[in-house]
């Protein structure tokens, strides 16, 4: 059983405060969704947790099973069991999937998995309808949006992290690819006890990835957390009800609203 705890996390980008105190806890086998309007900090959250350059943590903690992730370089966070499925996976010319996974597994001390990597890749590719011809391509180069996300999902399946953050898994891919990827992630939560933090701004994704908890991230804060029914509220009424700030009555409105759920 593993647990990722995010406590009072604040962070800035280029001097601008984006995260204003995020609190989240997710454990093995769970699926949580973080939903919110674009530009309010969802992708920043995933970048900061993974240690992407250009983001400055100004306060708070990120603990995986009690170990301070913020003190570790990115690769050690990954080796410790954190994983990020990127919204826009980076193209890395000339570097193949098996080269990267070989190194990644070696650095985790999983030499047995290195030996069986080729067969794992074929099995996993078939499972998510990822054309085997893409296995030999340089990472993400000339792949369609759907193929890139299948590629990301394939890596997740082979690396078997404890907790994965899926940043906008649904952007840039068709409904078939979405279903293939989402189902594989759900399988991982059951088979490998993966904890999945799903970042999205559409509830469509949540028809496939069934979260037990939904957190609403607005202006750098989790303004509301609840069960799956929260997604239905969002679908019906949008984020406006959860947007504090500008109008003085906003807080009261959202408070009343949620009190009635």
């Amino acid at each position: 059983m593993s647990t990722l705890e995010i406590r009072g996390l604040t962070a800035s980008v280029a001097g601008k405060q984006i995260l204003n105190g995020i609190d989240l806890t997710i454990s093995s086998g769970e699926v949580h969704a973080v939903m919110g309007p674009n530009g309010d900090g969802k992708s920043t959250l995933s970048a900061v947790v993974m240690g992407k350059p250009g983001y400055t943590v100004t306060g708070g903690k990120v603990l995986l099973d009690g170990v301070d992730m913020l003190a570790l370089p990115t690769w050690e966070r990954a080796a410790a069991g954190l994983h990020l499925v990127m919204q826009y996976p980076t193209e890395v010319p000339g570097v193949t999937l098996d080269a990267v996974l070989t190194e990644a597994l070696k650095d985790r001390g999983r030499s047995a998995d290195v030996g069986s990597l080729a067969s794992q890749l074929h099995t996993e590719a078939a499972r998510i309808n990822f054309d085997e011809k893409f296995l030999d391509r340089p990472l993400n180069v000339d792949l369609s949006g759907g193929e890139k996300k299948r590629n990301e999902t394939l890596q997740l399946a082979v690396l078997k992290p404890k907790i994965a953050i899926l940043d906008e898994l649904d952007s840039g891919l068709d409904i078939d690819a979405l279903r293939d990827c989402a189902r594989r992630v759900m399988d991982a939560t059951r088979e490998d006890g993966l904890g999945a933090l799903v970042i999205t701004h559409y509830s469509r994704l949540l028809e496939e990835l069934r979260p037990s908890r939904i957190h609403i991230l607005v202006k750098g804060r989790i303004v509301e957390s609840g069960g799956p029914e929260l997604a239905d509220v969002l679908e019906r009424d949008g984020y406006a009800a959860f947007t504090p700030a500008d109008s003085s009555s906003a807080d009261a409105v959202s408070g009343d609203y949620l009190a009635g759920l």
């Binding site: 990020l84 980076t90 890395v92 570097v95 190194e103």
Partner: peptide, 21 residues
């Protein structure tokens, strides 16, 4: 960052990127 986020050491990641280049 992409390679390191998979758990590849920075120096190994650099080698992979340069050789891939």
């Amino acid at each position: 960052f992409y390679l390191e986020s998979r758990g590849v050491r920075p120096d190994v990641a650099e080698r992979l990127v340069v050789l891939g280049f």
